[in-house]
Every structure is written in structure tokens, then in C-alpha cells.
Design a protein around this nucleic acid. Structure first.
Lengths: 331, 331
DNA sequence: CTGAAAGCGCTTACAG
DNA sequence: CTGAAAGCGCTTACAG
């Protein structure tokens, strides 16, 4: 069954294809009566313009490209949730692209550009920083709007939507310090993500201001690996509180600590910096800085639509607010 | 900076655009010397064919459409992981579409079709069953290949990749029965997903065969809701074991049970039917039927490529194997 | 093996 | 307000 084209509609409505096109794109330029007649035929035939042909003729595909490292990561899929909802609202289609481990971002980008997207969203921060810089320069040469989503390179002048992870971590560390805690560890990852770098900075600032040496323990994001790290860690260190860059790391640590005989929060307080579903499935439930990942996705997509439609943008770097959710792992 | 077109390449290589096109699509039809010359220019100019123009001219977009209810659900994003990896391997681009709560699948489908995808993948089973049937009929009328991914409508003759949830649940229930357990509850959802229907069937079969009345407790997938359900549940029932359709439900139940004074697995055994990351972040770790969600995504994408490229397909309904991972919540 | 030409299904100045 | 025509960047028979 060949699908119906603009010619079919034009024929049935006894107008030229130009008029049908206008009815769809500039209805105000068409005589109301003609317009109604065409609209009726469109509905009868169930006509929908071929997006590919439209894209070629108008040189706008109404499609955005999303570049990410790993879809299955919880934050990525939540970002996607926000992005999809807003994209739907503004009638944008979404193409997704992954950068595999070891693959060159620039290669992926050339594909994205060849796919003729109207704008690009970079998700998260698992992509190597220096390559990202080059990649972004390249896109900007191509004149195609980009927004960075949940990642922040301070030194780059690129539209960005994120939260102030440094401040969040600084504040939560300070709260622990004010309670009189001293042996506060930051549980971070071995691999250096820019977002985690900001968290480390905020933590270090708070500790240093309090005259204390920062205590950072780096491990893997993989539970089956960090488990062993934590078993050693807990044996050898005196720990009063931990703040983890990811909830799953916080929960993994807490489970090991409790199994080793510690009480949470009485002996050790534990805090996560995300507020994912892990936080409400742990026992006790995890206190968290709540980072609005869905919103970051939604806002970044909205920002991108502004650039694509050449609307005026007053703020190109948007920082969303966060808040703290107190649960059972803190006093 | 306007991007380079096939004309630029043709000009620089002193051939016609037809030859450039052939070099890219049917290299064997081009004289080796000419081919090398063109290839060299392509590399120099960094030429990549405009995917949109190519799609229009060839009526193949090398793009697949993925239709889903909710990206942020863990199983969806894992399916996507498998899909993306295989799609990349076969050079397919991916467009994602969501069906919002209350939205008509047919409306979404008309968009998908207008976007000119070469094939469609339906993810999971959150879409209303009767509407799905109509939707699938519609696509098949449009002659566009479809594969169902991690969902199975027995009564529909549509290519499908899934696992045998009924058998898996039957077997795990039987194992508990053989240990002498009788008060074995199935924790399912209030909303009826087809996949869960299969799980219920397998469970009921095992219980009935053992001469026992099936014991099904239905609750919400939302932890903040099912928590209260479980508090009542545990007060009023005698429970020896539970099997949950989702890991998060299993963990949520287990936390309530332990807080109420029960020991797991001594008093109550708990089993999940997914094996997500939740299973290794619970205390104790959750015994699970391990369902290979990534693989389901990968295999379904591979199957779809076969249909799109008109390769011969020997099996249109693929059932992947699963296995059981014993951890701390069973004896 | 190679090129000229038609066509994919639209949009968009340009006339009228 | 409407239509004829050119063009978007490719592919693909058809000749040669």
C-alpha cells in the first residue's frame, strides 16, 4: 500500500500541490474556504507529509540528535525521559547515538551531522574531556546548535543545563561538619567524570575550611567490584560519615558497613548525591541530595528548541536548584 | 559553512555524480582506478552523503523506529542498550518514540510511519493490548517490518523476541514447592501487563499441580505506595516465600518484612524475576531468575535487520534462555 | 565502466 | 490567494 502523497491530496482537493503545502505550513496565506476543503481531504486520506522529503526541501528535519555514552545508566534514561516529553511537545523527533568505549567522538559526530539533525544534545560526562572540546568546536563550525546536558565544562562557552554539584556537595559536607563529624569520607569513582570533579571540589572546600584533611576513597561504579574495596576500606579506616557521588555506591558501601557490624546512622552516616530509586529501596532508606535529572533533560531540550528556532536566549548556562531529602541514613 | 555535497566530490574527482554514488553504493561496478581517485577525494573533503537526500532518493532511510511507553524504566533502557549496539553494527540510525499515558498508539504510529523508518521495534508491554493489535495490523498494512521486543502476544502472528516467563515462573515456584514451602505468594502488579500475565500463569500452574490454592498479592510498582500495602500484607498473612514480578517489588517487600522482624531467608524466602542492579544492592542480595534483557534488545534488532534487508528468516518467534542466580534470599 | 536525465516528495521564491 | 517551476542532494534505470 503506497502511502498517500501531497499530489494525491492536491488532486482530490482540486488545487496545486503548492497550496496543499501552504495549508500545512502557512495556513494564513490560504483562502479560508480553500483551506477547509484541503484540510478535509487531508483528514479523509489520512495524509501526513513525508518527513524525509520535507527535510530535504526545507533543510530542516525537526529532528534532534542525542549523543551519549551509555543508555542503560539510570541518569541517562531519566534525562531521556525529560527530553522526550519536551521534544514531543515541540514536535521534534529524536535520534539517539552512542559513543562506544574507545570510539572517537568525532567519528560519531560526523554521522550525526550527516543525519541532518537540527540540533544536538550531549548527555552526561562520560566522554573524554579533551575530545569533547574538539568535538564541540567542530559542531559549532557546522553552525548546528548544541546544548550540554548534565555536564559542565566551565572553560567552554557552550549552552549548558546542569546543577551546581560543587555547591551541593559543599553544603552537605558542611552540615556533617556542623554536627561535629570529622572523619567524613567522599566515595568517588576511579574514572574521572567532570561532574564528580565538581563534587570533589565542593567537598574539599568544606573540609579545608574546617581545617581538616580531605578524605577521598575512589572505587569502581560496579557493585561486584567496589564491594571488595569497601570490605578493605571499612577494616582499615575510622569512618564517621560518607558522601557518595552515586547512590548505588552509597548503598553498596552501607551494606558492607552494616554487615561488618556498624550501625547506620548511629555509627556511620551515609549520604547519596543523586536520589534515584536505589535510595528508597535500601535499608535504611538513603538520605540524598536530590538532583532533578528529568528536569535537566526537559530544560535542556527546551533550551535547544530556542536555539533551533532562533528565539532569543537570555541565559545560555542554566543552573537548576536541588534540595536535600532526609531519610534514615542520617540523624 | 555549507557541508560538502556529492557535486563537490564529483567536481574534484572529475567524474559525474553518478560515479560518486556508485563508488559509495556499488563499488564493484566502478573501475578500480576511478574508484581510488574518488575515494581519495571523499576522504580529503571529509564527505559524508546527506542521509536525508539518500533516504528520499532510495526510499530507504536505514533508520529504525523504537516505540516505547517509558524510557526511564530499567528494562527499557537495557533493551535500548542491546538495540543500539546491534544497530550501530549494521549502520542503522535509531529514532525513539514514546506513547504517553492516555495517548492513542495509532496516532504515534502515524508519526512513526511519516518519519519513514525502515522498521519498527515495539518495546515491553505497557501498551494496552487491544490497541496494540490494531496498531500492528496497521503497520503490517503499510508493509513495514515490525518486531516485538520483550513482550509476547501468543495470539498474534508477529515476529517476537522474548523469554518464556511462564516456564521460568513455573520452575522457580516448583523449586520452592519441592523444598516443602506451601504459603508461596506471587507479588504482582495491579495493572495487567502481558508479561506479568505469563508469570502469573506459570505460578498458578505450579501451585495447582501441587494441589494448592494460588496466592497472588497485587500492588503498585511505586515503592512509596507498595510499602503501605506490604505493611498490611505482612501483618495479616502467613508467608513462607514470595516471588515478585519485578526486583524492585521483591526488595521493597523484603525491607518491610525484615523491619517487621522476619528473617530472610530463614522465615521467608524472596525471589525476583529480573536480576537488575537492585538485586545486588539489597541486603541480603536477591536471588533471581536472570532475564537477559540486553540480549533481548540485541537479538530483536538483529531480527529486524533481517526483515528490512529481506533476508530469509527461519524463526520469527525467538525465545531466549534464562537462568537462576542464587543469592542470599533463598536457602 | 561512465554519464545524462528523470525522479524521490516536498518547499519556496516568483508571477500573475 | 493560487499555480508553475526550480531545487533540496541523492539514486537508478537507460544509453552508450
Amino acid at each position: 500500500m503506497a502511502s498517500t502523497t501531497i499530489y494525491d491530496v492536491a488532486g482530490a482537493a482540486k488545487v496545486s500541490l503548492a497550496t496543499v503545502s501552504r495549508v500545512m505550513n502557512n495556513p494564513e496565506k490560504v483562502n479560508p474556504e480553500t483551506r477547509e476543503r484541503v484540510l478535509k481531504v487531508i483528514k479523509e486520506l489520512g495524509y501526513r507529509p513525508n518527513a524525509i522529503a520535507k527535510g530535504l526541501a526545507s533543510r530542516k528535519t525537526t529532528t534532534v540528535g542525542i549523543v551519549m555514552a551509555d543508555v542503560s545508566r539510570a541518569s541517562t534514561s531519566q534525562l531521556l525521559g525529560g527530553i522526550m516529553d519536551i521534544a514531543k511537545k515541540y514536535n521534534y523527533a529524536i535520534k539517539i547515538f552512542s559513543v562506544a568505549e574507545g570510539e572517537d567522538i568525532k567519528d560519531v559526530l560526523r554521522i550525526v551531522v550527516a543525519e541532518q539533525v537540527d540540533g544536538i544534545l550531549f548527555l552526561n560526562d562520560e566522554l573524554e574531556s579533551d575530545k569533547m572540546h574538539m568535538a564541540i568546536n567542530q559542531i559549532q563550525d557546522d553552525q548546528i546548535p548544541v546544548v550540554l546536558c548534565n555536564v559542565n565544562y566551565d572553560e567552554l562557552d557552550v549552552p549548558t543545563v546542569t546543577i551546581d554539584y560543587e555547591k551541593a556537595t559543599y553544603e552537605i559536607t558542611k552540615q556533617l561538619l556542623e554536627e561535629g563529624k570529622k572523619d567524613i569520607y567522599l566515595l568517588s569513582t576511579v574514572r574521572k567524570y567532570t561532574v564528580n570533579t565538581h563534587k570533589v571540589k565542593g567537598y574539599e572546600k568544606a573540609m579545608t575550611e574546617a581545617g581538616l584533611e580531605p578524605l577521598i576513597f575512589r572505587t569502581s561504579g560496579d557493585v561486584s567490584i567496589n564491594k571488595y574495596h569497601f570490605e578493605e576500606f571499612i577494616k582499615n579506616k575510622h569512618i564517621e560519615a560518607t558522601i557518595a557521588v552515586r547512590d548505588s555506591i552509597a548503598v553498596s558501601f552501607m551494606n558492607i558497613a552494616i554487615n561488618a557490624g556498624y550501625k547506620v546512622p548511629e555509627d556511620i552516616e551515609v549520604i547519596g548525591l543523586q536520589n534515584t530509586k536505589y535510595a528508597v529501596l535500601s535499608r535504611p532508606n538513603l538520605t540524598c541530595v536530590d538532583t532533578p535529572v528529568y528536569d535537566i533533560g526537559a530544560v535542556s531540550m527546551r533550551l535547544l528548541t530556542k536555539y533551533m528556532q532562533q528565539e532569543e536566549v537570555t541565559e545560555s548556562k542554566i543552573v537548576l536548584p536541588y534540595n536535600v531529602v532526609k531519610r534514615g541514613t542520617t540523624k
